[in-house]
């Protein structure tokens, strides 16, 4: 669209942003040990490394513990309605391709109340980076089952155990036409989390990152097994995917070389039940972005509006006797 082209203005003060430039003066209020902290750290590091101007960066969220993240960023934030982060972010991106748009959402926010928007956001494939904090529980409202809660989970609304099989956000995402980037990260592997978030940011399109997020408050031992036994994590590596530090490579030996262009294999990996895949499952940079498809050919200047309105009025006008006549559209 025809957003103000401020990037062509000379940046007179050659500013170098540091991590603290992305930290708001509100200290994060998540519980100690909450995985959301690690996600925030990764994002602030990303902003610093990419040198994103804070005024050109927008963090959109819904409602939930995870959706508090924009308050802790020094950037523009939009902490809106439960489940509606995607359409808000789409509206922002539509006319303002110059803005860097991030969405933080929870498993309830994204996969339950916002599920319709989630599916369609994948289809629109607008250029934004999405972090779905999946703690498999409703945190903010105090421990109700979420669509990703494991079957049998005892929660306040399922005291005898959750009845249904959980929804798999990865297979769902990979099943939608126009999907262009799907990854999974874990808050307890910060190096790969950061790597994945950076690659998500650099992908032009709808980059969906599911982050397995620990909620010590309501799901204290949910991910213990994975944290303690690295062999249960399958790292997806590829020259077009993750690049591992020697340390990570030594700890996580269960690795698979997976080409992110291989959708079928991505779907198989997404369906693993015994192990947790971490890495980039799918990437396709050929999928067009909705904002580009809908970009107007001409900016809406007053002159253009006048011309187009007059053209339209002409179709419907009855002229006085002394002026040329043309039939009115009916």
């Amino acid at each position: 669209m025809h957003a103000p082209r401020t990037e062509c203005l000379l940046n007179l003060i050659d500013q170098e942003y540091a991590i603290r430039d992305y930290q708001s003066d509100i200290p994060p209020r998540w519980c100690t040990g909450c995985g959301d902290n690690a996600i925030l750290t990764a994002i602030q590091r990303l902003c610093r490394d990419e040198q994103l101007p804070p005024e050109k960066t927008v963090f959109v969220s819904g409602i939930g513990c995870s959706s508090r993240l924009p308050h802790y960023m020094n950037a523009y934030g939009f902490h809106g309605l439960h489940g509606r982060a995607f359409p808000v972010a789409e509206g922002i991106k539509m006319r303002r391709p110059d803005l860097h748009v991030f969405v933080t959402t929870g498993d309830g926010d994204c996969c339950s109340i916002g599920a319709a928007h989630w599916i369609h956001a994948i289809r629109y494939n607008m250029d934004m980076t999405v972090l779905m904090h999946d703690n498999q529980i409703y945190g903010l409202t105090k421990m109700q089952a979420s669509p990703t809660s494991p079957r049998g989970l005892r929660s306040n609304t399922t005291p005898r155990g959750a009845y249904l099989e959980p929804l798999n956000p990865l297979t769902v995402t990979l099943g939608v036409p126009n999907v262009s980037f799907v990854a999974q990260a874990a808050d307890w592997i910060p190096e790969t989390l950061f790597d994945i978030v950076s690659q998500a940011y650099r992908h032009k399109g709808f980059s969906f990152v599911r982050v397995l997020q620990r909620c010590p408050e309501f799901m204290p031992h949910r991910f213990d097994a994975f944290v303690q036994d690295p062999s249960l994590t399958r790292l997806l590596v590829h020259q077009k995917g993750l690049t591992l530090t020697p340390d990570t490579s030594r700890t996580y030996r269960n690795q698979e070389i997976h080409d992110p262009g291989d959708l079928n294999r991505a779907r198989e990996i997404a369906s693993l039940t015994e192990e947790v895949p971490v890495g980039i499952l799918y990437r396709n940079s050929e999928v067009p972005c909705y904002e580009d498809l809908r970009e107007g050919e001409r900016p809406n200047t007053p002159g253009l509006i006048r011309t187009v309105l007059d053209e339209e009025f002409d179709k419907f006008t009855i002229w006085p006797e002394d002026q040329p006549d043309q039939p009115a559209a009916s």
């Binding site: 957003a3 927008v58 959109v60 939009f78 809106g80 309605l81 509606r84 995607f86 359409p87 808000v88 972010a89 789409e90 509206g91 922002i92 991106k93 539509m94 006319r95 303002r96 803005l99 319709a116 928007h117 599916i119 369609h120």
Partner: peptide, 18 residues
């Protein structure tokens, strides 16, 4: 949009940023 909830939120996002 995919529904009216989304249409309204989309318009709000567009208004907010423009």
């Amino acid at each position: 949009a995919e529904d009216e909830i989304s249409a309204c939120a989309f318009a709000i996002g567009a208004s907010y940023a423009g």
